[in-house]
Nucleic acid binder design. Structure first.
Lengths: 226, 226
DNA sequence: GTCTATAGTCAGATAGAC
DNA sequence: GTCTATCTGACTATAGAC
């Protein structure tokens, strides 16, 4: 646990970068350990397996990130005692901690954002099951808060709206940029997290606030809430 | 080209299903060919390589899907001669053909939706480069149409809004369902594509229509359009 | 066109010296 | 804790018989 620190850290940092760039499956332990300047066997010694390493890499950032989300939510709730938290603030509290990791230039945090996006679409189902609990509390608390400030939405509609919210964020984080097709048509500005957060907040807030379409010609029961 | 048909089709159908379920990298040709009841060498004989098979599987659905998008766009433009197409119709024309593939129960089209979502986040960069041109025309035409009906948005804002639009759709398609965490809290209805399309259209339309935040304290020049 | 058999490569994991 | 060396298995791709 002394000289260990350096090795373990270097493995985590290098893995974060490579996983984000190439994906989990396309990153071999051989490539990883050579770039981290550690021995091939070190990964299995310190983490037990490649899958366990993947989980460790994700958890290292995910747990603090979701902690920050909850911290901001509680701060908002404290500031609006009794009243529902404004929608825009809720959105910002949810997406802010995720996008802000991109600014962490000292560590490889900038890559982690893309990695988190990959976490749920590319990882083996077994890993997804271990990741889900890390989101459980955040989604649970935010869902309640969103429901409080959007009482006019049915439970089903709210479920889907939050689904869309998470989806948009995940896509932004994954860095899969289908839009680069049209990038030639005039986009050049470097990615500014504050600006993206602001744009995304506006977009999502408006979407969440949209009037619910009348449910007809389908099997959904409109479930009245509160 | 006679008995060939059956083999090639079975390979494509099986690949579509397995790629969607397990991803590209996690699906081996051995597993694929055994499930398709064809010989291991058949893939390389008919497609040349695994990568070429992936491309073929995607292109088989992607090209018609994007063709349908453009067809609907042209129909809308014909119906609104001179005037911009209503935003909601534009959104529906873009996301409809994608989500409707899920209804294609006869063929394995239902899995393909998830596969398309994977196409850009999980595939090797080399493949992404061959996929991008298949989107080029669609994005180009729709971008113009969105710009016409949203003249108040700056070019940068429009770019990001469309990015969010594509992102939300891609996430819905990928089937990566982070929200299943809260599924226990009352969701049970089977996925009805029409309903999802309607919900998504409302959400996206509202987001696209949101008033652009005033650009301040950042380096963006508001680019006047039209 | 279809098959068997196999070449050639690379993966993750581990035993055991230091 | 770190290293070398190696095991075991899976993969893609292909050569060549039918």
């Amino acid at each position: 646990m002394t000289a260990n620190q350096g090795t373990k850290q270097r493995i985590l940092d290098t893995a974060e970068r490579l996983f984000a760039d190439q994906g989990f499956g396309n990153t071999s332990l051989r490539c990883l350990t050579s770039q981290a300047a550690v021995n091939l066997a070190a990964v299995n010694y310190h983490f037990g397996s490649k899958d366990a390493l993947i989980e460790a890499v994700i958890a290292r950032r995910l747990v603090p990130m979701n902690g920050e989300r909850l911290r901001r939510l509680r701060a908002l709730q404290g500031r609006h005692r009794g009243h529902p938290v404004p929608l825009e603030s809720l959105v910002a509290a949810f997406i802010g901690p995720a996008l802000e990791l991109s600014q962490d230039t000292s560590r490889a945090g900038s890559q982690f954002i893309r990695l988190l996006g990959r976490g749920f679409v590319e990882s083996p189902p077994q890993l997804q099951d271990r990741l889900r609990p890390m989101y459980r509390e955040v989604i649970d608390h935010f869902k309640r808060a969103f429901a409080a400030v959007l009482p006019e939405l049915s439970a089903e509609e709210l479920y889907w709206r939050l689904h869309f919210l998470v989806g948009t964020l995940a896509y932004c984080m994954s860095g899969a940029d289908m839009m680069r097709v049209v990038a030639s048509s005039g986009m050049s500005a470097p990615l500014d997290i504050e600006v993206v957060t602001q744009r995304l907040t506006v977009f999502l807030t408006a979407g969440l606030r949209a009037r619910e379409p009348v449910a007809e010609a389908n099997g959904f029961k409109r479930t009245a809430r509160a």
